[in-house]
Design a protein around this nucleic acid. Sequence first.
RNA 1: GGCCCCGUAGCUCAGUGGAUAGAGCAACAGCCUUCUAAGCUGUGGGUCACACGUUCGAAUCGUGUCGGGGUCACCA
Length: 609
Amino acid sequence: MSFTTAIQYAVCNSLGGLFGQEFTEKDFQVSETKPEFEGDYTVVLFALVKKLKVAPEALAKDLGENLVKNNPGFISGFNTIKAFLNLAITEEALLSFLTENYKDVCIGKKPVSHKKIMVEYSSPNTNKPLHLGHLRNNFLGWSVAEILKANGHEVIKSSIVNDRGIHICKSMIAWQEFANGATPQSTGAKGDHFVGDYYVKFNDEYKKEVSELTEEGTSKDEAEKNAPIMKKTQQMLLDWERGEPAVMELWNKMNGWVYKGFEETYKRIGSDFDQTFYESQTYLLGKDFVQEGLKNGAFYKKEDGSVWINLSGVGLDEKLLLRGDGTSVYITQDIGLVKQKFEKYNLDKSIYVIGDEQIYHMKVLVEICRKLGMPFADQILHLSYGMVELTTGKMKSREGTVVDADDLVDEMIATSKKHTEELGKVKDFSEGDLKDLYEILGMGAMKFYLLRVDPKKRMIFNPDESIDFHGFTGPFVQYTYARIHSILKKVRDDERGEEGSLAAGSWEFEGHKSQLDVQQLLPLERQLLIFLEKYAHVISQAGDELNPSVIANYVFHLAKTFNSFYAEHSVANAENEEKKILRLHIAVMTATVIKSALQLLGIAVPERM
RNA sequence: GGCCCCGUAGCUCAGUGGAUAGAGCAACAGCCUUCUAAGCUGUGGGUCACACGUUCGAAUCGUGUCGGGGUCACCA
């Protein structure tokens, strides 16, 4: 039981005893005591003052006395200010929490719940490389999946690859027309970038043709429709749908290049998937359900044969489900895929990590599922996140202001190399160790930067800020971890009277008695313990809100508090042996929680940096 | 225009019913013969967009106004 829960329980009991009636934890609030006041937890009793018609001070005082009396091993004292009751936790309780958990790698995680949740994220198009927006999506999806696992759920990470459609044909046509048989191999380009360049080439060519036509007097609409390269592209899409061998071969070849490029990027940024869906395999799935909906009257057909749903009853518009020529649109395949997902995996919930510009689309999907009587309609959840903007405004591919994912990763790693070399603390590292360290720090900085903000909010990407390794950043937290490792090493070297290397991931400090005597805690020691105890709550809050920034804020605050403690009190040269052992435990526990929390964000920790 | 989201320090963000609204960056002033200074300590910086309301209590809830964004495709 967490301290907060235990306090709620104790308060209910004491109130019941004092007033002879039932109370629940909703009758009052328990929060951490603000630093400017004395105490660890505060019970806010204003609501009860009114209900019970008693004086605030008196209520707080009576309750405080009763709590101390009835919880001798837990609550050691109290003070009151109006209806605020500040409680102090006993050393005994804090220290037993510490000894029981200090090196538990599963700290804060919940037992298995048997809930099955799919998290669909990333979902790229195969006509261009990943950019900054995809990075937010990938980090967010991956982290949310891990956070849900930590909350005891079974999680399936999935991705739907948008590998077909007119936009894919555009890069194919451009390659056919302009590449002269060039390949990623022949040019040394990364596959996804190589294909992306032809997508850009298509648009340039298209624009040129349209302006030529309009200069000849064609209307803009006509020109856009009849530009020769567009005609060819549309023809190619038809050929693709018919399975024309030459087109299929080209399609397979070019997508193969892209997948090879994606694979490289995913590996670097740590994205992985348990299941990958391909639109080319799912785009026909929804058609049958549309027919079904037509039959039972959920949908209707217009004169041209197109099929629609009217959602004006729930505040949405009418929406096309199937084109007049019988081909499917985007949402058609979504209907098919969602059903397949729930049936194949027997899901309790399906979370879609998609940008907030698709809120409307996802609402429509849920409504369609409802209208079709699909039982899982309410288990679809759109985790929408805000767009990443630049300080100069939105990213626009046409204006070349898109921040490429691979470039950004390279830059972050180069920056971490630069900082590390300037500081010169790891000159004894091997080439391989250095490379790993740069990777850990660069990726840590980038992931932390993109995950520290509430996903629902739009965020501004500031290039200077993102490569900062000081303050509210990943490397700051990683640094705190490395410092703790250094403390452990120092203690061990002192004991042995020689330089010894601490085994990786080992927190053992044998040679000391492992038992902690009950002792007076200094304010910072106490503060750290109270804060560490909160970690379990933070994991469940992040899980409830599907919000990794909760973890990022917490772990930063923890590192910050530890660094203050570190500056104030020595571990290796503590006042006495008792203090030394206590602080070793606290240091190890801080490291354990930092490692666990950063892992939930997809960030690794270095032992030295 | 309809619907949805946002507005907190110079900048980027926490805080979603409780005490005198907090961090980081930027600025300024200090701290390394002692466990890593990628750190610590301090100073300055606020009409929580505005107005009214609900409440013992509002940055937080409600209504309205202003400002910014998204969306309402036989695109995906």
